[in-house]
């Protein structure tokens, strides 16, 4: 019964993907869209394989992946640390939390020129901009995660003589982990957007640099193939974190 339903869902999803590519192919072949602007998937998909086989392209891809990972590795402890400090110290929280909410609301792309002046146009600038993009949502998510720890469980732990450390490891850690992972996941989405955008704006290497070059020189099959690769990269990062989030928060879904 259940297996049959799962099969039907899978079938529907497969048809949707197939239908999407068929529509795309059809639109391009039948002249509904200009094939010079929208090359058909039969042209784009082989291009994906071609690009991945190309050492020059792989070097660009690897630059972007390293920028993303390093920015993530810096942003995660920094964001969680600031979030914890804001949530745990009533003074710090009241004084500085509003600023994080304010800056979180501002589109980060407007700061990109400042980052170029501060960090140049190389690897370090992309990482710094990625960290900047990811940080705010992570700080806000962490502070919210602390606030979401149920008081009744803290009281229970105290009534049973838990030490401060035990209260953190037994209660806070477990209650907060799924929410922090959610913040991290959203942060990584911002991080990817930021890094690729910074590369497109000005850079010597990276996926974004390829995109702008291809766009300007009208190389549409490469551009669309690159977009598919960037999409796959983001989806892999997002789904990995989502799987971790589900495991850590299995107790949340009845």
């Amino acid at each position: 019964m259940r297996a049959a339903r799962d099969r039907r869902v899978l079938l529907a999803q497969a048809s949707a993907v197939l239908g999407f590519f068929l529509l795309w192919e059809g639109a391009s072949r039948l002249g509904l869209a200009d094939p010079r602007l929208l090359p058909p998937p039969t042209l784009v998909l082989p291009k994906v394989a071609e690009l991945l086989a190309d050492a020059g392209f792989r070097r660009h891809l690897w630059v972007t992946v390293r920028e993303l990972l390093l920015a993530g590795v810096i942003a995660a402890p920094l964001g969680v640390g600031i979030g914890l400090a804001l949530a745990e110290s009533p003074y710090l929280g009241r004084a500085f939390k509003p600023f994080f909410h304010f800056v979180a609301a501002v589109p980060k792309s407007v700061f990109l020129p400042v980052f170029i002046l501060l960090f140049g146009i190389g690897f370090g600038q992309k990482v710094a901009f990625g960290v900047f993009q990811a940080l705010f949502v992570l700080v806000i998510a962490t502070a919210a995660a602390v606030a979401a720890v149920p008081d009744e469980l803290l009281r229970l732990a105290r009534a049973n003589g838990a030490t401060r450390w035990q209260i953190w490891t037994e209660i806070h850690w477990n209650a907060m982990l799924p929410l922090i992972l959610e913040g991290l996941r959203l942060g990584m989405i911002f991080n990817i957007a930021g890094v690729i955008f910074a590369e497109m704006y000005v850079s010597r290497a990276g996926l974004g640099q390829r995109f702008s070059t291809w766009g300007e020189s009208f190389r549409m099959p490469e551009l669309f193939a690159g977009v598919l690769i960037a999409a796959a990269l983001s989806i892999i990062v997002n789904e990995t974190l989502r799987a971790l989030e589900r495991r850590a928060g299995a107790w949340r879904t009845p």
């Binding site: 009744e152 299995a250 949340r252």
Partner: peptide
């Protein structure tokens, strides 16, 4: 023993 069972959900 508290009013809410106060069980650790995880």
């Amino acid at each position: 023993v508290f009013q809410e069972a106060s069980l650790l959900p995880w």
